[in-house]
Lab assay of single mutants.
Amino acid sequence: MQYKLVINGKTLKGETTTKAVDAETAEKAFKQYANDNGVDGVWTYDDATKTFTVTE
């Protein structure tokens, strides 16, 4: 399945996608991506759209 990440950071904004077997695996990949880019915020997930959002 394909999952999307929407980033609403202080210095980084945008979107990225990943393919993963489940939401938990996608979340780990997205959190690593956010961490690598210095984004630390509040996470939400919408199962209907398979979209994670992180807001600083």
Rank of each mutant, 00 (worst) to 15 (best):
W43C: 02
A26E: 00
T17R: 06
Q2E: 14
A34F: 03
G14V: 15
K28C: 05
G38W: 05
K19F: 15
T53V: 07
A48I: 11
E15Q: 07
T55P: 00
N8L: 12
T49W: 04
G41M: 02
T17G: 05
A48R: 10
T25K: 06
K31A: 05
Y45G: 00
A48M: 11
N37L: 13
K50E: 03
V54C: 07
F30Y: 02
G38Q: 09
T53D: 03
I7V: 11
T11A: 10
N37H: 15
A48T: 14
W43F: 05
V6P: 01
A29T: 14
K10D: 09
Q2M: 15
Y45E: 00
N8P: 03
T17S: 11
A20V: 05
F52R: 00
A23H: 10
D36Y: 08
V54N: 01
T51F: 02
I7E: 01
V39W: 08
N8Q: 11
L12S: 08
N37K: 15
T17V: 09
A34I: 10
L5I: 03
T53S: 06
K10G: 14
D47V: 09
W43R: 01
D36W: 07
K10Y: 15
D40R: 13
Q2H: 09
T53A: 05
T17M: 12
K13E: 06
Y33W: 12
G38I: 04
Y3M: 01
T44C: 06
Q2R: 08
T17P: 02
N8T: 08
N37W: 12
T16D: 03
T18Y: 13
V39N: 02
K50C: 04
G9P: 03
Y33I: 08
W43K: 00
V21E: 11
Y3C: 02
L12K: 07
T18M: 10
E24C: 09
E56R: 03
T17A: 07
A29K: 08
Y33G: 01
V39C: 04
A26Q: 01
V42Y: 13
K13C: 10
T11S: 13
A23W: 13
K28F: 11
F52A: 00
A23G: 04
K4G: 04
V54P: 00
N35P: 01
V21F: 13
N8E: 10
F52S: 00
T55C: 05
A26F: 01
V6Q: 08
K28R: 14
G38K: 10
T25Q: 13
Y45T: 01
A29N: 13
K19W: 14
Y3K: 00
T51G: 02
E15A: 06
K28V: 11
T25H: 14
F52W: 07
Q32M: 11
K4N: 08
A23E: 08
D22F: 04
K10C: 07
G41I: 01
Y45A: 01
I7S: 03
G38F: 08
I7T: 04
V39K: 02
D40M: 15
K4T: 15
K31Y: 06
Y45I: 02
T51V: 08
F30D: 00
E56V: 09
G38P: 02
T18L: 11
A29C: 08
N8Y: 14
D46T: 05
V42L: 08
L5W: 02
T18P: 02
D22V: 03
Y3E: 01
D46P: 01
A20H: 05
K4Y: 10
K19H: 12
T51D: 01
A20Q: 05
E56D: 08
K28H: 12
T25E: 13
E27R: 12
K31W: 07
T55A: 05
T51N: 02
L5K: 00
V6N: 05
D46Q: 04
W43H: 01
A34E: 01
Y33F: 12
I7F: 08
K13I: 12
T49D: 05
D36K: 10
G14D: 13
F52I: 02
I7P: 01
K50R: 14
G14L: 15
I7R: 01
D40E: 13
K31S: 04
V54G: 00
D46R: 03
M1F: 14
K13W: 07
V42I: 12
K50W: 06
T25M: 12
T49G: 06
T25A: 13
T11C: 10
Y33C: 03
T17I: 10
T11H: 13
K31E: 04
T51C: 05
V42M: 11
L5Y: 01
N8M: 11
F30P: 00
Q32C: 05
K50D: 03
G41Y: 03
A23T: 11
E24R: 10
T25V: 08
V54W: 02
N37P: 01
T53C: 05
V6G: 02
G14M: 14
D46C: 06
G14C: 11
E56C: 05
M1N: 13
G38C: 07
Y33H: 05
K50L: 10
V39F: 11
A23N: 06
E56W: 11
F30G: 00
K4C: 06
V21K: 13
L12D: 07
K28Y: 11
A29D: 11
A20G: 04
K19N: 13
T11V: 12
T53Y: 09
A48C: 07
A48N: 10
A20N: 03
W43V: 02
V6S: 04
G9E: 03
D36V: 10
G38N: 15
T25F: 06
T18K: 06
K4V: 12
T55V: 09
T11N: 14
L12V: 14
A23Y: 13
I7Q: 02
T18C: 09
V42E: 13
Y33T: 03
L5T: 01
E24G: 11
E27M: 15
Y3H: 03
T51M: 04
K28W: 09
T16K: 13
T17E: 10
E56Q: 07
D46I: 05
V6C: 05
E24V: 11
K10H: 14
K19R: 11
D22I: 03
Y45D: 00
N35A: 14
Y3S: 01
Y45R: 02
A34T: 10
K19T: 15
A20C: 05
L5E: 01
F52C: 01
T16I: 14
A20D: 03
K19L: 15
V54A: 03
A34H: 02
G9V: 15
V39P: 02
F30V: 03
G9Y: 08
N37A: 15
A34D: 00
N37Y: 13
T25Y: 07
A23V: 12
T44Y: 08
A20R: 03
M1Y: 11
A48H: 09
L5Q: 00
T44W: 09
D36N: 10
W43Y: 02
E15W: 11
K13F: 11
V6F: 07
A20E: 04
L12Q: 09
T44N: 09
K13Y: 08
G14F: 11
Y45M: 02
D47T: 08
A26L: 01
T49L: 09
L5C: 06
E56S: 05
Y3I: 02
D22K: 04
T53P: 00
A23I: 12
E15T: 10
E27T: 04
V21Y: 14
T11L: 13
D47S: 11
D36A: 08
Y33E: 03
M1Q: 14
L5P: 01
G38S: 08
F30W: 02
V42P: 04
G38Y: 06
D46M: 04
A26M: 02
K13R: 12
D22L: 04
Y45S: 01
N37R: 15
D22Q: 04
Y3A: 00
E24M: 14
T44L: 07
N35D: 13
L12T: 10
T49N: 09
G41S: 02
Y3G: 00
D47G: 08
K28L: 11
T11Y: 14
Y33D: 02
G9N: 06
K13S: 13
A34P: 00
T53F: 07
T55D: 07
E24H: 12
T51R: 03
D36C: 06
K4P: 01
Y45H: 02
N8K: 10
N35K: 15
